[in-house]
């Protein structure tokens, strides 16, 4: 069921504060978080988070397209070992 609009998006408050401090400092750092339930807000764009998946902190580079999704969506909790074949990775 959809969340009521009047409540606004859910985000853990301490996470918002930490992101603001990190953005203000201008340092390129990984913010390790456990809060997979928090919504990605526009304030987070450009920051890099390490989102815990129960075992390790998966690096999540926040872009505009990710706003509105939850952090947990980008940090899968199950292992999938694919083949590299002809796949490419682009350095951001």
């Amino acid at each position: 069921m959809a969340r009521s609009v009047w409540k606004g998006p859910f985000v853990d408050g301490y996470l918002l504060n930490k992101a603001e401090v990190s953005r203000a400092s201008g340092r390129n750092e990984i913010i390790k978080i456990w809060s997979r339930r928090s919504t990605i807000l526009p304030q987070f764009v450009g920051l890099t988070f390490g989102v815990y998946n129960g075992k390790k902190f998966i690096p999540v580079q926040v872009t505009e397209n990710m706003v509105g999704h939850k952090f947990g969506e980008f940090s899968p909790t199950r292992t999938f070992n694919g083949h590299s074949a002809d796949k490419k990775a682009k350095r951001g």
Partner: peptide, 13 residues
Amino acid sequence: LPEVVVEPRPGEE
């Protein structure tokens, strides 16, 4: 990259 740990508050984890 340097890492900053944001600990969850008690009960939130």
